Amino acid sequence: MDEFSHSGPSHLRRIDWDDAYHCRAVVASLVNGVYVMERDRQRGRQGSQALAPPWWEFFHFQLCHVLVDEVDSTIFGAVYKFVLPDRARNAPAYVIALRGVMLTPATSACDSKLVAMCVSNMLHRGSRFKSALGVVEHLLHSVRAPNVWLAGYALGAAILVLVGKKMARKNFALKTYLFNPPFMTVPLGRIKYRNLRDKLMTLARLLKAATAGALNPPKNEPLVHDKFEVLACWEPNLFVNPEDDLCSGYIGYFELRTLMELIGAGKVEMIAMQNSLINLARRDSDAESIDTLPTACLTTNLCPSPDFKLAHGIEQWWDNRTQCRSVLHRFLPKERKFEMIEMPPRHTQQGRGRKVVAKL
């Protein structure tokens, strides 16, 4: 999957930055460019032999910075600059892209350690998070926030969730693309029997809310709520495959809001959705959960995936045969309500043509 001419979306000769598929395909290609850069480095492919440049140059981007892991010296991210003389309307000026795990001798040890940190909600203590955050903060000194986009896949997506949260709390709601972002709970949504699935998911929510109520002193509740609710202005784009157990939990996380409201447990849901069982068990106020989000546009791949490799693969997101469903799940802090907005198949990034299907 290294050669762009064979594997990439080379059919996209003209990019419409108001088209959701075009944006998704371009950004996923930029993320894949990080993978190919690291494989070029490992295999000694330099100059004309390097396979990575077409993954960004085809879309008129320039590589302006490479993020290198300070522990194993591998490439884990990149900063791309859009270089068309007359920058297209709604195109980003810069994209910060992070890769996920690579199972190679040069990368597996450090990447596996980061996976463990991800599971324990400790990614914010890792050097990659600090490097990515530093790059974003540096760019925002000279570039307006709407012109800086974040893009990550799997582990890289998890890191950028934390970066996005950090910047949202500073009033910078950055456009963010998260491909197959990990969800750190049992994927109950994969249970085929709907009644059993709904009961188990509701029970899990009730247990989480009860645990949060028992462990969090009432005097700390306003602080916890404020820290979570300030994120409502940030609308990251999440791309998940229902057959990928590493990310499919986001589907149930957002859809369960409707169910909880219907059974009269909206207040319980308010508590449950902003708490992580891992953080509650450790009583670590410094830990930051990657899978608690008040608002997100959730795009689900509706095409069947014959195996995990395809369900988890990044190439599905630039494949023009992929059929998707996108729903904006929005939390309204003032009204203390949730809103679901169904997006047309090729919806625009500016929100035209949105259809409200439920306001809870």
Results as ranks from 00 to 15, higher is better:
108 S>H: 11
335 E>M: 10
172 F>I: 01
10 S>Q: 12
238 L>I: 11
25 A>S: 12
45 R>V: 01
58 F>N: 07
260 M>S: 02
278 I>F: 12
140 L>T: 00
32 N>K: 14
133 L>H: 04
33 G>I: 09
315 E>M: 12
24 R>S: 08
117 M>D: 01
189 G>Y: 01
119 V>H: 14
2 D>I: 07
317 W>N: 02
284 D>H: 03
341 I>N: 06
161 V>S: 00
277 L>D: 05
103 L>K: 15
162 L>G: 01
87 R>C: 07
320 N>K: 10
69 D>F: 07
208 K>H: 09
233 C>W: 03
93 A>R: 15
225 H>Q: 14
249 G>T: 04
130 K>Q: 13
59 F>D: 02
291 D>C: 04
35 Y>M: 04
258 T>L: 06
229 E>D: 14
331 F>E: 01
125 R>F: 04
93 A>D: 06
261 E>T: 10
74 T>F: 11
163 V>F: 05
111 D>K: 05
13 R>N: 11
335 E>Y: 07
300 T>V: 15
319 D>F: 00
266 G>A: 10
354 R>T: 06
145 A>W: 06
137 E>I: 03
238 L>Y: 13
323 Q>V: 10
59 F>M: 07
350 Q>N: 12
122 M>L: 08
59 F>E: 03
22 H>Y: 07
240 V>F: 12
170 K>G: 00
78 A>I: 05
96 I>H: 02
62 Q>N: 09
345 P>A: 14
276 S>T: 14
48 S>I: 11
162 L>S: 01
173 A>Q: 03
30 L>W: 09
68 V>D: 00
83 V>K: 15
324 C>T: 15
331 F>K: 06
139 L>G: 09
26 V>S: 09
104 T>N: 07
98 L>T: 01
304 P>H: 11
152 G>K: 01
104 T>D: 12
219 K>R: 11
355 K>T: 15
299 T>W: 05
104 T>C: 11
30 L>I: 11
22 H>T: 10
342 E>D: 13
314 I>Q: 09
237 N>Q: 14
261 E>D: 12
28 A>D: 11
94 Y>E: 05
230 V>L: 04
266 G>W: 12
289 S>Y: 00
342 E>W: 07
43 R>S: 03
89 R>C: 03
308 F>Q: 12
305 S>H: 12
189 G>V: 05
